[in-house]
Design a protein around this nucleic acid. Sequence first.
RNA 1: GGCCCCAUCGUCUAGAGGUCUAGGACAGCGGGUUUUCAGUCCGUCAACCGGGGUUCGAAUCCCCGUGGGGUCACCA
Length: 478
Amino acid sequence: MSSTNSPARVRFAPSPTGYLHIGGMRSALFNWLWARHTGGTFVLRLEDTDRNRLVEGAAEQIYASHRDLGITPDEGPEQGGQFGPYVQSERLDIYREHAEKLLESGAMYRCWCSPERLTKLREDAQKRGVAFKYDRHCLVPANRRPESEPHVLRFHIPDRPETVAWSDAVRARLEFRTEDLDDFVAMKADGYPTYQFANVVDDHLMQISHVLRADEWIPSTPKHILLYQAFGWEPPIFGHLPAVQGPTGGKKLSKRDGAQSVHEYLDEGYLPEALRSFLASLGWNDGTTQEVYTTDQLVDRFTLDRIQKSPARFDKDRLTWVNGVMLRQMPLQSLLEAAESFWPPVAAEYPTEYKTAVLGLVHERIKFLAEIPELTEFFFADPKPDPAPLTKQLDVTVAQSALERVIQALPSDWTEPALEHAIRPLAEKLDLKTGQLFGLLRIALTGRTAAPGLFETMAVLGHDVTLRRLNTALQTLR
RNA sequence: GGCCCCAUCGUCUAGAGGUCUAGGACAGCGGGUUUUCAGUCCGUCAACCGGGGUUCGAAUCCCCGUGGGGUCACCA
């Protein structure tokens, strides 16, 4: 299948009303994957026709999210392209011009109805238990008003009852009856188009071949198709993606219930590659038992027919696992680069070689980069002296003599094997269990009960620091 | 409420009539490795929403329920 697809032109069209949450990013990723898989083009278009909901800086955040996730658009507001502009508020003339055509052909009509009247209509519909449909009041010649008065442009749903159907790339045939459709507003009174209208005009003008969008758009797709027909245009292929639900399920993922921006994950040290693999698995799989994918594999195997129909829940535990797998597979050098902005402040003065050695010890245990300070802090700063944990397992005198013996036994050959050779036998001589002695030393050296292996830790810490910390521990017991 | 979509372990999913006493993975639990934690290895718990059909045979097809979700804006 992969080689038989012609290059697709796909788009992701968010509106700048806030940051992009994970569900939105998943849609963007699917579009990007399909473009890459077919050797096509990924277009980013900003749908900013609602002036009331614009959020300062949101557009920039959206651009950044794509960049940082590694799915930079081929065409868009930032990169331009031959089908621009890619911001809808800069295309007002285009919409007006096209609206004019449909006005002339009779596919659209002017409507002067007040918000109050519409609200009343809506309430009536609710009372009667039916879906709201505009009553076409302004279609009656007697109700027409001067064109100079504020009005909107409505699309005239065909009077003849018919079925509007399309073959969805994700869920086979979908159909609606025109009787159930409302004469929706295409151009608002402020001169801006609605999504329904701008979307169709732009997708056609930008030669979009596949519209892959969230399935909440299914109910408005017949309106879009009717619009294409009114223009005499060929509709694109529609593919409606299953929703991404929050961790607790139920409602669709929204920004209030734990949904987060890509940046929050990036900031926690989730790798873009891990995010891509995990996000792809939310509603798509290749049918094998493979669980983690490189992006090349994703691009190679991504096909529309393997997109899931049912909603997927966002499971952070699984993301964390994927991230851990990728972190562990990463060469130490790459990990060092990825970790750059995650070091604790105290690490600032230390040389790269030292940090590399430290990273080598936590490489196996790290799940996301933000854990680095917690995992490595004691490599850079002495633990706070505290007698309590030192004597939790052993009484003071035993702990003291153990520390003294270890200090005396420290080898001159400061290597992991030499250290182990010198210290391990001490446990038996002191009549202690290995775990008791090692536990004591671990606390003395790191201030923690959980840390990397004792001897590798000592090897990295170096002779002087090790000796100092052991002495400090001894002092606190006196 | 009208219209629409969806329905396999807690979660992500495999499954396109027989190979399903339903497979993999995450999480959970138990154990091995081991100086702790993590990792790793092994094991374990756990699902076809219900009812009717169709068929020799249904998780897979059809219908009806039920449940969940979406949508009914001069928001996208």
